[in-house]
């Protein structure tokens, strides 16, 4: 696991979720697996700002958020950087939103409740 982490050279991640609880949980999973969480955002607008400021290698994007939802934020980020790598975080029952996100350029999605290995698998795929 460690070796794998070093190979990744600590990819920079921006975590976007309105629940601090989810951010903590995700951050833990990611940091245990060699990712470096460089910023967190709690709504879509914040996410776009943080993306511009931090230029992360990858973004995990919650879908349901107040102010600006994840799909809109994804579009916003894509407008800033067409090559942005965004993985959506979805809960059950949000298929259509996930599909919208994929259409808008999301590279993958993970489903809550998070399973650590799935999360890492998805991020590894996207950043390889």
């Amino acid at each position: 696991m460690k070796l794998k982490g070093e190979e990744k050279m600590s990819k920079k991640v921006l975590i976007v979720d309105d629940a601090a609880f989810m951010r903590m949980k995700l951050k833990d999973i990611l940091e245990k697996n060699g990712y470096s969480v460089v910023a967190e955002a709690e709504n879509g607008a914040d996410a776009i700002e943080k993306y511009k400021a931090e230029q992360p290698d990858i973004v995990t994007m919650d879908i349901t958020m107040p102010e600006m939802d994840g799909v809109e934020a994804l579009k916003g980020i894509k407008a800033v950087d067409a090559g942005a790598k965004v993985v959506m975080c979805s809960a059950m029952g949000q298929q259509s939103m996930v599909m919208d996100a994929i259409r808008a350029g999301a590279l993958d999605f993970i489903v809550k409740p998070f399973d650590s290995s799935r999360v890492i698998q998805a991020l590894d795929k996207v950043t390889q």
Binding site: P66, E67, S96, D100
Partner: peptide, 24 residues
């Protein structure tokens, strides 16, 4: 075309919700 018709309402309503920010 999977899901093409499915653009759900919540997205459209975000703009409105954002304006009501002060009361939330």
């Amino acid at each position: 075309s999977i899901g093409k018709e499915e653009a759900r309402e919540p997205i459209k309503d975000q703009g409105k919700a954002a304006k009501k920010k002060s009361s939330s």
